[in-house]
Design a protein around this nucleic acid. Structure first.
Lengths: 251, 251
DNA sequence: TAGTGGTCTAGACCACCAA
DNA sequence: TGGTGGTCTAGACCACTAA
């Protein structure tokens, strides 16, 4: 009974490591600076490399570090605020947004997309691929699914594929009157092709933004955008910048 | 030269494993069903347990699996849609939202919060803690930071702490006229206390929703809400449910 | 080619939960 | 108490980058 109750919850080593490293990052390192390599750090802290890596992974998840194979581990700049929800709801591709058209193809979408669009599960839709640039870096890759019914005038005309085709699909889409839209954000991991577009490894954590565009009483298009979770902070509403700082560490 | 170029990109074992498991989950398992334990699965696939775990971690990140120490690994239900951005902007705590007041304290917030509120870095603010329930489960924990200047009438009256105090702070806050608000979503890892409130381990991936409330020409309150990233899909706008399906696996 | 982070192994022990 | 997932070790080899 009378035993002093210290260490009721023995903190895992990697968790403690993360805290120590985090504080060191705040006080002793500048953005962009290269950390000692993993073997050296592990030795310095007296832990196995795997344990050290567990701490680094968490810090990378929080956007504090950036690791590149063959190069090293660097201190990451604060996350970039990326405006996702503007007040005015518009079709994709209007005026000067910072999306770049990549290409366009006709293909059968995943079942979940087909269901959301209420197209048949074997029905081909236009899939426009776009990339979003911010501060000279790709921050998002998007697949915009447009049922053929939404762009009826398109059939046969214009280029059969490529950016020209993508432009044509967006142009036709903008002829519809937009009734409203809908967004959802969730955590995911990067598919192989998205990872390549975002310069990350497959499986990297991403924020998945799903947008439904409504017109003529149905879902006229569905966008699935994959944002880099390590470098991006998605902003809604005002779109004003807010200061960023350490916010989710252990104390 | 003439050599056939197979296996140009040798897929990591854990990645392939994840794909195989993912397909098995779709076809052979029902929601809530318990998978074989990790040692058994590793043996069955002929890999080390650590490798198997790497695959399971990814699937958990994508919301396909749920792992609980001492219990086992189960097939997770589809993510719950949680409405975060309603059309009408309101103060927290008005009418029947699904937040539960936990307590309230006067404390010095992290530097990042103090900066956003434009309070001094040593200035104490009211910190109201709330928990959001959905489908009988805690999906979010929130810290609502309210500068003392925003609730001047509060000083000294009412209960000094606890839920009653929290109620009083919110009541006073609602007397201000809300000029607008602002949201940002980013990836984070759960602090120890949030993890406990959300029934997860510390460091679990979370979606961090930061909301600024503007009134009287300044930031009158700042909310930092921590949502479980494994079980939640944050919805903005309509708030309508959309069908969920596998969307970010390798193919 | 040397050095980095990424993957993988085959163990061990611990914290937690249910029976 | 037995079985689960969580942590940790001390190696090994591989893929990638830059010099």
């Amino acid at each position: 009974m009378g035993t002093t109750q210290l260490e009721t919850v023995p903190e895992p080593k990697y968790w403690h490591l993360k805290t120590v490293l985090s504080e060191a990052l705040d006080s002793e390192f500048a953005v962009g600076e290269i950390l000692p390599n993993e073997r050296e750090l592990a030795a310095r802290f007296g832990v196995a490399r795997a344990t050290l890596r567990q701490a680094l992974e968490q810090l990378e998840l929080e956007g504090r570090l950036q690791r590149r194979r063959g190069v090293g581990t660097t201190v990451a700049p604060p996350r970039v605020g990326v405006a996702v929800g503007t007040e005015q709801q518009t079709w994709p591709g209007v005026n000067g947004d910072d999306w770049q058209l990549v290409d366009c193809a006709l293909a059968v979408p995943p079942a979940a997309v087909a269901d959301a669009l209420a197209t048949g599960r074997d029905e081909e839709v236009h899939i426009v691929r776009r990339t979003r640039m911010s501060h000279g870096q790709a921050v998002a890759a998007e697949l915009l699914h447009v049922p053929q019914a939404s762009v009826p005038e398109l059939s046969g005309i214009d280029a059969p594929s490529g950016p020209a085709r993508a432009r044509a699909v967006l142009r036709e889409l903008q002829r519809l009157e937009l009734d409203g839209q809908d967004r959802a954000v969730e955590l995911g991991s990067a598919r192989a092709d998205d990872a390549k577009a975002l310069d990350r490894l497959p499986g990297a954590p991403v924020l998945l933004v799903t947008t439904r565009f409504f017109a003529e009483g149905r879902t006229a298009a569905l966008s699935v955008a994959t944002y880099r979770a390590d470098t991006c902070r998605l902003t809604f509403g005002g779109g004003v910048e807010i200061h960023h700082g350490p916010e989710t560490q252990a104390s």
